[in-house]
Amino acid sequence: MNKISIKRRILNVIFYVLSAIALLLLVTPLVSIFSAVLIEGVKALSWDMFTKLPQPPGSKGGGIANAIQGTLILVSLSSAISIPIGFLAGIFMSEYSENGLSSFLKSITEILSGIPSIIAGLFVFSVVVLPMGTFSALAGALALSVLSIPLIARATESALASVPRDIREAALALGIPRWKAIIWIVVRAASGGIIAGIMLSIARVAGETAPLLFTAFGSQYFAKSLLEPVTALPLVIYVYGSSPWEEWVRLAWGASLLLVITVTMISVIVKERYGK
């Protein structure tokens, strides 16, 4: 192939080199972030981290037990709110609504899932926190639900849509009422995709910070009621991470490690089991 001129060959080499550099630029931050979280996080690990409350700025020791508790509360509460709603909404869009209505609802779902997460926080601040006069775990969970409802609805809808029509017909032809056929046969056929969608949405909201600022707010103590402010791992990372105290920054890295492990574990499980 000596017909290829020098210039064309050089251009080709430049393409190879630049695109390889691009890949490198894409991978480097990932490697750097994961190793930073791993190294700094492991340094922060201690028994106290899991069992103690944070200490006042400047003093040594302390932990983020309250943030772990808070994240568990927020994620469970928002799951309890958003899983049923998102799941049922997905069923309506896929199984009951006429084509026009269904695509309208689907695009509304897209819009809701596209709003910035801090907006969800502002909204709940305005309609829940201000009227109630207090930041609370409930408000935080509601804000997270605003984010996860459309995710779960969309995942449910598309998992159901991929169940062949034949399966529904076979169920109905057995004389099974439609709602029972949907719940026990169609949903079951789509269960992999639905569960994967739900787990991924949990992983996503577990790492959300912005919607919690104006709702859950944060706290130095364990939560005793859903109507009190609580803290959460991502809040700890934000507040402690941007604080000038070394001990707090250390805890922020510890919290990051916990969060990254949780999120990564969920997505690995989802991948392994449901191939998503």
């Binding site: 990932l30 994961f34 790492g207 910070t209 990372i237 991470g241 890295w253």
Partner: peptide, 18 residues
């Protein structure tokens, strides 16, 4: 996927310190 699943607050922390 991994890059997309890192919570944004961790990007912030990494950005600040690294």
């Amino acid at each position: 996927d991994a890059l997309a699943s890192i919570p944004s607050v961790i990007y912030g922390l990494w950005g600040l310190f690294f």
